[in-house]
Computed example of a mutant assay.
Amino acid sequence: MRGGEPVVEAVFTGGYIEATTSPKGDLDLPGRWVDWENRVPGPSWISLAWRAQDDRLHTGARTVLDRLLNAAHTEPYEGGDVDVDWPSWRTFAAALGNPQLTMAGLRPDLWAIGHSTTESAAVIQQDGVILADSPDSPSLFALRDWLTAWEKAGRPAPETYTPTLVPAGDDQGTAGWHLRLSH
């Protein structure tokens, strides 16, 4: 704290497991911000940055997850190994602050990050496979642009970002802070 306000001391990769009153037995699923999940035939989940625009039945989240699980288009990422630089990609994608950012777990231990709307979806998985709803998907074009920008930035390490805390508030008067990263 400096002058009564929080200060960011460092940015680094890591994990977060939400503290709960009872043990969490399923670590394949994040503790918060999951907009839809399937348990059958295998566990899968999705988290949308645009959740506030989805309806109360999570129709958008369900549709996007279904599009990705039944991807009409797959391609290998030609930029090299993504898994080794996954913390870099995850941080870069989050720092974009794009309202269409999407994170998913389509198979256990294999996360994916990409772009989605109510009409299209595309993600790159940790194994370097890109999945999209079609070869001419607007989300696929957006994802490719993000990956190109990431490569041009040199796959920056998370600790190279400059953090800024921005005051946040909502309609209920709840205050807090948003972390913004710039490179």
Rank of each mutant, 00 (worst) to 15 (best):
M1H: 02
R2M: 00
G3L: 02
G3Q: 03
F12P: 12
T13V: 15
G14K: 12
Y16Q: 15
Y16A: 15
I17D: 12
A19F: 14
T20W: 10
K24Q: 03
D26R: 14
D26Y: 07
D28I: 09
L29P: 03
L29C: 14
P30C: 08
G31K: 12
W33D: 04
V34N: 05
D35E: 01
N38Y: 05
P41Q: 09
G42L: 12
P43S: 05
S47Y: 02
L48W: 01
A52S: 10
Q53K: 08
Q53L: 13
D54H: 04
L57M: 15
L57R: 13
A61N: 01
T63C: 05
L69K: 09
A72L: 09
E75C: 08
E75T: 08
Y77T: 05
E78F: 13
E78M: 14
G79E: 11
D81Y: 12
V82W: 13
V82L: 14
V82N: 05
D83L: 14
V84S: 13
D85V: 03
P87Y: 09
F92Q: 07
A93Q: 05
A93I: 09
A95L: 06
L96W: 07
P99K: 11
L101K: 02
A104R: 00
R107N: 15
D109Q: 13
W111S: 03
I113A: 00
I113C: 00
I113M: 00
G114V: 00
G114P: 00
S116F: 04
T118E: 13
A122G: 04
G128D: 09
G128H: 04
V129D: 01
D133I: 02
P138M: 10
L140D: 15
F141R: 08
F141K: 10
R144C: 01
T148A: 06
T148W: 15
E151D: 15
E151I: 10
K152S: 14
A153C: 04
R155H: 10
E159P: 01
T162F: 01
P163R: 08
V166Y: 07
V166S: 11
P167A: 06
Q172V: 09
G173F: 05
G173W: 12
T174Q: 07
G176V: 08
R180P: 05
R180V: 11
L181F: 02
